[in-house]
């Protein structure tokens, strides 16, 4: 009697484990599935002399998700951003955006395709006001020609008015419209970060790359930022790729996370998987 019960129990646990394993593989397949990716890199590598900054990176960001790229200092996260935005050209490998290769395009061409970014060390235009910063980013969608500008044609006036309205609307969404005539770099730090995101949005991107958006923020500002990033994704239907150091922010918003160490991808998965992944813990804490 007691033996058969034990057998039953063990059978159940076996079945359970088989089931959970199947579920797990299905899910991990789903996690690593690359079909339907809006941004995809294929064995992307870049060398600076003898240093391999990014080594054979495979990445697939799906439409509409918030994808996190994390890793210890010097892991090559920002280099990945620079590869994706055309600042660097990969030594080997390919980058596809919406199914088209973009790895040999120049930065402004990639911006025209619908990839926009912010910078780790804020790069607002210092001599410009908040509104001008955002207006400058409307450049891609401007319909005025140089001749229109010189002769101040009706088309110029209309285009300027439309762009201004668009920018003010964007600034309003992010609560910055009352600062419109302030110098962009004279804003408090948190608002500068926010303004940089607004500026990136003014290019009307499909994919937004955020390079350490929480750097230098206090916990309250970080909470704000998490809300902001979600808002941006939901309201504008964007895909967001985010490089971040701050685990609270990363775990708080990312739907999938990829981990880089010494330029090599070492893990990819859902936030809770990454949190418990021994390889990731080792990379962060050392042996």
């Amino acid at each position: 009697m007691s033996g058969s019960t034990e057998q039953n129990a063990s059978r159940r646990t076996q079945a359970e484990s088989i089931l959970t394993e199947a579920a797990h593989t299905a899910r991990s397949q789903e996690v690593t599935d690359t079909s339907g990716a809006v941004l995809r890199t294929d064995k992307c590598t870049i060398r600076f002399g003898g240093l391999i900054a990014v080594n054979s990176l495979d990445m697939a960001v799906r439409e509409g998700e918030i994808y996190g790229l994390i890793g210890p200092n010097g892991a090559g996260k920002t280099t990945v951003f620079n590869l994706l935005t055309g600042v660097y050209e990969p030594t080997e490998g390919e980058i596809y955006f919406q199914g088209k290769r973009i790895d040999s395009l120049r930065p402004h061409q990639i911006a025209r395709r619908g990839v926009s970014r912010t910078f780790q060390n804020i790069r607002l235009f210092p001599g410009m006001t908040v509104l001008e910063n955002v207006l400058t980013a409307c450049h891609i969608h401007s319909r005025q020609s140089l001749a229109d500008a010189v002769f101040r044609t009706p088309r110029f006036e209309r285009d300027e008015r439309e762009q201004r309205e668009f920018c003010l609307e964007l600034l309003k969404i992010f609560g910055l419209e009352r600062f419109q005539n302030e110098g962009g770099t004279s804003l408090p730090y948190g608002n500068q970060r926010r303004l940089e995101i607004v500026r990136a949005l003014a290019t009307r991107p499909k994919l937004l790359l955020l390079d350490e958006p929480a750097a230098g923020m206090n916990p309250a500002e970080q909470e704000d930022l998490i809300e902001l990033i979600r808002l941006v994704r939901d309201r504008f239907g964007l895909t967001i790729l985010l490089v971040e150091h701050n685990m609270k922010v990363v775990m708080g918003i990312c739907e999938r996370i990829q981990v880089l160490d010494y330029g090599k991808p070492i893990a990819l998965g859902l936030p809770e998987e990454i949190r418990n992944n021994p390889k990731v813990i080792e990379a962060y804490l050392g042996d």
Partner: peptide, 9 residues
């Protein structure tokens, strides 16, 4: 660099 990222050739 920022100008390029905003689509300015």
């Amino acid at each position: 660099l920022a100008a390029q990222a905003m689509g300015v050739n």
